[in-house]
Amino acid sequence: MFKATYEAITKGNPMWNELSVPSSSLYAWNPASTYIHEPPYFKDMTMSPPGPHGVKDAYCLLNFGDSITTDHISPAGSIHKDSPAAKFLLEHGVDRRDFNSYGSRRGNDEIMARGTFANIRIVNKLLKGEVGPKTIHIPSGEKLSVYDVAMRYKAAGQETIILAGAEYGSGSSRDWAAKGPMLLGVKAVIAKSFERIHRSNLVGMGIIPLCFKSGEDADTHGLTGLERYTIDLPSSVSEIRPGQDVTVTTDSGKSFTCTVRFDTEVELAYFNHGGILQYVIRNLIDSKQ
């Protein structure tokens, strides 16, 4: 049985052999597809690394307590009928019965970005106890979906950060738990502590992970999440070392020290390149020159 099954494995089957295969060596992205979309990770990428970046006058997109898991962050499960992802699919002619799941549409960054922080059980302190995937657009005071608020900030050229408690990113490791926040424009996460792999994944997406000092958190510093945050980092990666302290200031006059959680030299290299994907591409190109 084994021999009969595998002796013709390289010959395929009639259905497989009749598939139309483009002659180009580059993938032909279909802009009408709601399953696969060209992601923006390499948009406007240059061959020279952009270098490290701090954060200037950023708004707080979300203010969390302890134990925010990757299930809270990453798009997962069915697509809720009232979600930004559902609105996107309806606008692209997809019937509600064909929404499928986030897992099946993980190849479309437009849908996955809309599903980031879309968990219906998420608790955001900016909503003062209300449960659900919404947040406050601080300049206007409007309560909207996390995605819509993030897009308003991006359109206005305003950076965002996330405040969190202990064990941020706990649970199973999911790449979209880091990719999604990056696509929403999140530049840093300030938490009491991180799950090990998720912290590394954030670095891989160019997001700065910072830890409050022991015994401190957003509450001890009197932070409401309504402030604007500035994180000072050296402009040269050679001036940053793993685990060094940095100063965070707010427009309300508060200032506190955090530990920047670049834990290894290679993570600093990823950050210098803008993320692990850009780091890999640049190194591949360099190796062939």
Rank of each mutant, 00 (worst) to 15 (best):
R105I: 05
Y59I: 09
T250Q: 09
T220S: 15
S78G: 09
G157L: 06
A269T: 15
D217F: 08
R282H: 06
K192H: 13
Y27V: 15
L26M: 10
P209C: 01
K288L: 15
N13Q: 07
G275E: 10
A4S: 11
M182G: 04
A4V: 09
E38L: 08
S145G: 06
Y6R: 07
P40E: 11
G93T: 07
E216M: 14
K81R: 12
K187C: 01
L268K: 10
G141V: 09
Y59K: 03
K43M: 10
G12H: 07
P84I: 04
G171N: 13
D66Y: 09
A218R: 14
N30T: 10
S236A: 12
M205V: 00
D82V: 01
T250A: 09
P49T: 13
G157A: 09
S33Q: 11
A166S: 15
A191Y: 00
H198K: 01
K134V: 14
G169W: 00
L277G: 05
F271T: 00
E142Y: 00
A218C: 12
A191E: 10
K213V: 04
N63D: 12
P181R: 01
L62D: 11
V149Y: 03
L223P: 03
V237W: 10
A191K: 00
E110H: 14
S193A: 14
G54F: 06
D175M: 10
I120R: 13
N108S: 02
A32I: 09
K254Q: 12
N100W: 13
L19H: 08
I276A: 15
T249Q: 12
A155R: 11
L202D: 06
